[in-house]
Design a protein around this nucleic acid. Structure first.
Lengths: 176, 176
DNA sequence: TTAGATTAGTCGCAACTGCAACTATCTTAC
DNA sequence: GTAAGATAGTTGCAGTTGCGACTAATCTAA
């Protein structure tokens, strides 16, 4: 059936690879891509099949559920690094299902303040434990200290790519 | 302009989060997804704009370039965990551009043996150093030992999700 | 005040990709 | 040998998503 998937390479051998060849299996961007897809698929089983949510919808739910106050679609778009048109469609779908509601912002009538309905909050509360359990399941191959280390290393890369703000930056923006 | 992106949360605080709330910024699946997208985008600048390759095409190129012998589309599909229809279309596009060529396999006329043309090999040789440099650039925020550690942790998760074969499995399949 | 720039959100369009059906070929079982 | 099942690869179709244009509202600067 399947042939060997790592032709001539072994994860463990730390021989320096030639500059003129690239082993996909050791190439971090590819590995991240594949891992991300696999992890997403594993989680999708929790919220897609069971609750009929797709990824953008889940992100809206997660952002609104985590916050106590209402926020704009633009804010969700920034937070989740998801295109505003994608967020817009997700919000529309969630409003139709009465999971999210929005109110005009009198202070700036371009934007709407979004928040979970009671039904949306209930859905959120039901879904979260499942997802956290799934996350722990995926990370269960790591020890507690390895998990911390992994999170810290991810954080370093994220910060260097400016995917998250440092505390100082966040403070500065909250300050004025 | 932008409001703070991590409302009320700090990466560094290691307070145990409540089970009923989930901070996207600490949720590993989300972080992987976002990081993967960002890293892919950073690399795409190298092969998309400059060489007109999309992700599936790059994967075909990378798989064929790494191997010395020809292989089937199915093999590439397995290796890269990319759907066979996607690989099929990528191969078609690369053949039109004379980057890849294929020959019938007399032993099994359902499949074709794929390999890089001279032009394709030249493209590969030109592209690889750029991509490896970009990868190093992205990982330059980590020390050498941190990079090793990160790779090892990725490997653990990959193996637990059966994204890669262990050496033993690969050996077993090569053996018969 | 007012013109020009900026921002929030929506929507049409096009590109991409997974699914599933299809053809051609090979393998297995009888 | 033949029928049933499996496999390689292609393609039509539909769902998703990013881009960019658009409207409406706000901000800026003279």
């Amino acid at each position: 059936m399947a042939t060997a998937l790592t032709p001539g390479s072994r994860e463990e051998t730390s021989v320096r690879r030639k500059a003129s060849r690239l082993d996909l299996f050791r190439f971090v961007p590819f590995r991240l891509n594949r891992l991300s897809a696999e992890v997403s698929a594993a989680l999708a089983g929790e919220y897609e099949a069971r609750y009929g949510l797709d990824v953008p919808e889940w992100r809206v739910l997660a952002t609104l559920g985590f916050r106590n106050d209402a926020c704009s679609a633009q804010y969700i778009s920034d937070c989740t690094r998801t295109h505003k048109s994608t967020i817009s469609r997700a919000v529309t779908a969630l409003m139709e299902r009465q999971i999210v509601e929005r109110v005009e912002n009198a202070a700036d009538r371009r934007e709407f303040r979004l928040r979970l309905t009671r039904k949306g909050r209930a859905l959120y509360e039901e879904l979260i434990p499942r997802l956290l359990r799934k996350e722990q399941e995926i990370l269960s191959c790591l020890s507690a200290s390895e998990r911390k280390l992994f999170a810290a290393l991810l954080g370093k890369i994220e910060r260097s790519l400016e995917l998250v703000q440092t505390s100082q930056e966040a403070d500065a923006k909250e300050a004025y």
